[in-house]
Nucleic acid binder design. Structure first.
Lengths: 204, 204
DNA sequence: GCAAATTTTGACCGTTTGGACAAACGTTAA
DNA sequence: TTAACGTTTGTCCAAACGGTCAAAATTTGC
């Protein structure tokens, strides 16, 4: 598992690369990979295109670092689910954490959704490897909890999928959610409302 | 509400326009609007680019007819939910229908997801108008059922969102679902498994 | 303060893209 | 048969795109 040694970077390189990642996240999340241009990202980062290309060798490279970082963040909540903990509490925490991510990192969620929608060309191996392994492990934990009667019995895989789908919906389909809820119910409280609803749905 | 009079079309025009729509659906669903090229669509439809542009005045126009048709199909299952029917049966049928759509029309689902992800630039008015009105109406029906004790009490809006999110997940995130389930559980039966799970989740 | 290293810029290039157009081809109906 | 109409094609264009490069400007280490 020897990955290429991380190149030494100057302070400016670290700062500018981070600045570019931030800008690229904004742009990629809205337009997808092919729909985004280097110029757009450079603009959003407040620098010229050649300058940006001094820090990343091409468009792919920018996208790659985003996706890589994304996957870590994304799987963290599921990793945190603890077999030794109280099942109800663990599930509730998991839902809460995912919901907070939908609220606080909607761009990351949309970037991920975009990638999957297009067939996950860049992360399919990770999905089949790391993600599958993690889900297999946690599905076993959930199945165990269900056998012990601590959780209502159902299919643990689809149980996990349902939590993913419902929580991420509030990030990915936010426009639609707000359009349907209108001004009153669609305000800032919508994430809290949703979290409460989902706890009832999955634990009630 | 006078929309522009539908132009008279020859038989060939009707056939070719349909052929183009079919090809465009395939391409747009995979790459999104900006990520798709007219050449790709023309190729997929087996004709030259100028020929395609004889039938649709530009890329936007192709996309527009797809989106328009999509919305009809999309809302049909929810419209079909009948206040006079048995609540459990109505909800079950709704989930089944949505699940069948995820299985049989995944391209339509992905096209829709793409559009929403990008902020729904072309259909926001429809979401705020027609869709909101329909959901308001059906949410009231569901709330009524809940008050009558025919359905477990919860927030009817988030209840509908949850059904949307979970069913469409199996179309939009199909790659991920298959990657995680693997060959055995991820075969053709996955839609049936999911449907059963969701019935339990929403009605059990 | 200065030389070396790093950062930024403007000008440029080949390719792809959306779209225009006129000419050619095919079909139909008087 | 032929004129009118519908369809298809090859060619072309301007803009946008991803990316290069050498030179200028700036920062850094001594």
């Amino acid at each position: 598992m020897d990955r290429p040694a991380a190149p030494k970077r100057t302070r400016i390189q670290r700062e500018k690369r981070e600045l570019i990642r931030e800008a690229a996240l904004e742009v990629f999340a809205q337009h997808g990979f092919r729909g985004s241009t280097i110029d757009q990202i450079a603009d959003a980062a407040g620098m010229s295109k050649p300058n940006l290309l001094y820090y990343f060798k091409n468009k792919e490279a920018i996208f790659a670092t985003l996706i890589q970082r994304l996957l870590e963040t994304w799987l963290a909540p599921l990793r945190a689910m603890d077999e030794a903990g109280d099942p109800q509490t663990e599930i509730r925490s998991y839902i809460r954490r995912k919901m907070e991510m939908a609220r606080d990192f909607p761009r990351e969620s949309r970037l991920f959704a975009n990638e999957i929608l297009q067939g996950a060309p860049r992360i399919l191996p990770t999905l089949e490897g790391e993600l599958k392994a993690l889900v297999d492990e946690k599905a076993a934990v959930i199945a165990h909890w269900m056998r012990d009667g601590k959780l209502k019995t159902s299919d643990p895989y689809h149980f996990i999928f349902a939590i993913w789908a419902t929580t991420q919906h509030y990030a990915d389909f936010d426009v639609q959610v707000r359009a349907v809820l209108g001004d009153k119910r669609g305000g800032e409280g919508r994430f809290e409302d949703a979290a409460r609803f989902l706890e009832g749905l999955f634990l009630g």
